[in-house]
Design a binder for these strands. Structure first.
Length: 489
RNA sequence: GGCGCCAUCGUCUAUCGGCUAGGACACCGCCCUUUCAAGGCGGGAAGACGGGUUCGAUUCCCGUUGGCGCUACCA
């Protein structure tokens, strides 16, 4: 049963530009996007760059680029604008200051002058004494003029929220009822100063100001939710619905991170993963459409998407399944499209340049299509077309035959192919030329050595197809080399 | 340590009290076949444990165990 969505749906992805677009963030963005599209809502990108020390524009650019590449589109954001902007928190400081001052004036927040060292000592003491560590609240008891004097005196301070002690619970769309005792939270910091608000505060303010209806985010944020609810209540804000997504895990079952290898979306792009494959894979991590289909476009998924059917438990990121999706979508591509997609990988390693016959390259790619898991696989798979790799003469000998027989069959193949007209060196012509050899030596003893002589590999596409692409001159040369090697040994 | 969340094949998952526990990836075998890939067919592989509730529990409740997350003047 689908949940009734009462208010206009407005959801957001709120990445912090302190690193490249992460797989986890991308999946969260995807789910927000899907939910918005399903419900005719608005999807917003909001850059949470309050940490000025770690935030960088290049990371913001990377995030936008990654989301775009994945196939997501948004209605409001730092690049697209919108009537709830600005969409960078660094540009919203006036808004935060107003609400911060409101809290301060009403004694719902206070300046704290404790030094980091003091705090550390207090925390260690509490841990050692077996009491749950939290801020003592001591600065909350300071007299007003004392506070003013310290501030004008330039004593460093932060702003803490005066956390009311009570049981707090909220209904998570995915997890159900979540209960916490705010006693354990203590007076947490909401800003370094009125000019430098911190995450939990800005998130609460912006979710209200941007009229966010549903906060869909990773479950690592569950413990932030009560803090944000407390701030909303203090400021008289409305509470959005919350949906905490299960996490994506690495193979060792810990939260997916850099030490698990590629976590940046654009790294996957650069390795040769298709956006439709990654999106399809990510969407099915923690959610399923109800039937046993596996392949879905973003449009098809958004038509069926439902928050209430999202799984509660974390999911391991299985690269082999991604590869399977990717191989599928690669096979769906037309030869022309795949050629455009693969070309950069070939040019990058110098196999192909402006002078290369693109028709030949396209044929190579079409031939290797079924063997590609990633676009970058085209390089190792097609290298032999451009230059014959080193190989052991031994490899020319088919396992069910012997060196002497193979030497004879390869020589016969040479003769048969040499007799062909270079201008009509087609698959059909090559095939029928080799048929005479097959008649005498059998299929395996004929094709195997030809294939190895042409590719230098023990695993490759069929020799007839390779030969057609290589052209008569190169084919004759390679086979001749093979025959020579067999006769020498 | 404290708090929170979670718990079906190795992995992603189906099951919303009747199950010979279904599908997919991966793996293995067979077919196709000169090799590899693709494709087709088949196989092994799961309900963490202990209590309840019930005619009947994978499914509902409690406990245990385990995993993960959070525990910043990061987000």
């Amino acid at each position: 049963m689908e949940a009734v969505i009462p208010k206009p749906v407005r959801v957001r992805i709120a990445p912090s530009p302190t690193g490249f677009l992460h797989v986890g963030t991308a999946r969260t963005a995807l789910f927000n996007f899907l939910f918005a599209r399903k419900n005719g809502g608005v999807f917003i990108v909001r850059i949470e760059d309050t940490d000025t020390g770690r935030s960088e524009k290049r990371f913001e650019d990377n995030i936008i680029e990654g989301l775009t590449w994945l196939g997501l589109t948004w209605d409001e954001g730092p690049d697209t604008g919108g009537s709830y902007g600005p969409y960078r928190q660094s540009e919203r400081k006036d808004l935060y200051r107003t609400h911060l001052e409101s809290l301060l004036e009403r004694n719902l927040a206070y300046h704290c002058f404790c030094t980091k060292e003091d705090l550390e000592a207090q925390k260690n003491y509490m841990i050692a004494s077996g009491i749950p560590p939290k801020y003592s609240g001591q600065c909350g008891a300071l007299e007003k003029d004392d506070v003013a004097r310290r501030i004008t005196g330039g004593v460093p301070s932060v702003i803490r929220f005066k956390t009311p002690t009570r049981k707090l619970s909220f209904i998570d769309v995915i997890k159900g009822k979540i209960e916490v005792d705010t006693e354990l939270i203590g007076d947490f910091t909401i800003a370094k100063s009125v000019e430098e608000p911190l995450y939990n505060f800005t998130a609460a303010v912006d979710d209200e100001l941007m009229e966010i209806s549903h906060v869909i985010r990773g479950e690592d944020h569950i413990s932030n939710t009560p803090k944000q609810i407390l701030i909303q209540e203090a400021l008289g804000f409305h509470a959005p619905s919350y949906a905490h997504l299960p996490l994506i895990l690495g193979p060792d079952k810990s939260k997916l991170s850099k030490r698990h290898g590629a976590t940046s979306i654009l790294e996957y792009r650069d390795e040769g993963y298709l956006p439709e494959a990654l999106a399809n894979f990510l969407a099915l991590l923690g959610w399923h459409p109800g039937d046993e289909r596996e392949f879905y476009s973003l449009e098809e998924i958004s038509a069926q998407f439902d928050l209430s059917t999202i799984n509660k438990s974390n999911a391991v990121f299985n690269i082999q399944k991604l590869d399977w999706f990717n191989a599928h979508y690669i096979r769906q591509k037309s030869d022309d499209d795949l050629c455009v997609l693969c070309l950069p990988y070939l040019t990058k390693v110098g196999l192909v340049d402006a002078s290369t016959d693109t028709e030949k390259v396209k044929k190579i790619i079409a031939l290797e299509k079924d063997r590609l898991k990633k676009l970058s696989d085209i390089v190792p798979l097609s290298e032999f077309f451009f230059s014959l790799p080193e190989y052991e003469t031994e490899m020319l000998v088919w396992k069910k035959s012997d060196a002497a027989t193979v030497a004879k069959s390869l020589a016969a193949s040479y003769e048969a192919l040499a007799a062909l007209n270079a201008a009509s060196f087609t698959k059909e012509a090559i095939k029928s030329a080799l048929d005479t050899v097959v008649t005498e030596f059998g299929t395996g003893a004929t094709y195997w050595p030809v294939r190895v002589a042409l590719s230098g590999k023990d695993a490759s596409p069929g020799p007839v197809e390779i030969a057609e692409i290589l052209g008569k001159e190169e084919v004759i040369k390679r086979i001749h080399a093979g025959v020579t090697r067999l006769n020498i040994e």
